[in-house]
Nucleic acid binder design. Structure first.
Lengths: 210, 210
DNA sequence: GTCTATACTGGGATAGAC
DNA sequence: GTCTATCCCAGTATAGAC
């Protein structure tokens, strides 16, 4: 039906995005050259400019599509979840799970904001703020209802986001701990940080230690 | 008595360190040129090489002296503090306080590890691991004693470090919140995250909201 | 749409006068 | 120890053949 990205013809644009994403995450935007990206894709440097007008546009595109995906998935994850406690748990579970699945995307969106030129920065920072705002609202609501014991909701929101996002810094697939364990640990830390004690008992049988 | 950095003669080396620190923190190592640093200092580019052999050595030097200072201050802050609960509180209070005082140093040491060449990386990463290890030990001890309710101590240590270190990302002097409030909020989040409830009552009178 | 080739800029680092 | 001047290379982006 549609003409684009349809058949299995090689999708150069997509491969450029993928390689750039990985390299930016590994070394940082400024430390990666268009030649590096081209080599990873298997084309010559000039070919990239058939798909992206500039390195800057490539970065902005990566961040935009990532943030759009995050916001969509995040809204879906919290849709129909009611009450600050349940919403906070859902937020933490979604956030860590998503970050385990897309560590490079997340890392870039978190770290390379400063590499954006003013226009892109404003647009993309606004998307990030929306996301942060939903967590802040949950915390403020829980605090107002007397359910949470926290200081300033904005401070706590940033503290939790830093904590949850930090999972991308050290997590590597096939490591000592599996995905489910890590998520539960972060969810527990999140809920306890606002003064709650465990979501539901030991949660998935507390068999961490033998 | 000593011959170096003694009188008030201009300390070019120190100014290079200071400007490089600030610029690396603002834009990232790869995005800052030796010309940028020289301009900030007020000398010509070549003059830097009278004090540092290379840009890479300059970065390694900044990170090393920072980490040495952190480890010293951290040991002093925890010296004589006994018991996992008190030590965890002292750790959190020290960590956030130090990071509020030296945000640029901390940010670089956290973010620019990947910009180090192999030799410097090993050396400096070992220093970071020592620091992380002290927190992990506190958590493991508290968990073993049944005082803390956490999952894997290594996961929780990294989660807390990311949370506490993240204060440098958003804190700006003269903002809405003062230093003491921010520290107390982070300390509270830290202690609660392991399942404790408040260090001592409301702590400094809970007058956050009017 | 990809290639080769190139324009142009800016980077790290060095040489030698002062 | 700092300066000016320069080397050499890598970087982004473009032009034009295929």
């Amino acid at each position: 039906m549609n003409s684009d990205a349809n058949t299995r013809r090689k999708d150069t644009r997509g491969e450029i995005s993928g390689c750039a994403l990985r390299l930016f995450a590994e070394r940082g935007y400024a430390a990666v050259s268009m030649r590096d990206i081209a080599e990873a894709v298997g084309v010559r440097q000039g070919a990239i400019y058939n798909h992206f007008a500039s390195k800057q546009e490539l970065l902005a595109e990566l961040m935009t599509s990532h943030l759009e995906a995050v916001l969509r998935a995040h809204e879906a994850a919290l849709a129909g979840v009611a009450g600050p406690v349940a919403r906070l748990e859902a937020f933490a579970r979604f956030h860590v799970g998503y970050h385990l699945d897309y560590p490079a995307d997340v890392f870039i969106a978190y770290m390379e904001l400063r590499s954006l030129e003013p226009e892109g920065f404003r647009r993309i920072n606004a998307m990030r703020s929306r996301y942060e705002g939903t967590l802040r609202a949950i915390l403020a609501e829980g605090a107002a209802a007397g359910l949470f014991s926290i200081g300033d909701p904005a401070v706590h929101a940033r503290a939790l986001l830093a904590m949850l996002t930090g999972v991308t810094v050290w997590y590597r697939e096939g490591g000592r701990l599996d995905r489910a364990t890590i998520i539960e640990d972060y969810v527990r830390a999140t809920l306890q940080s606002v003064g709650l004690r465990m979501p539901r008992g030991g949660d998935k049988e507390c068999s961490t230690q033998p």
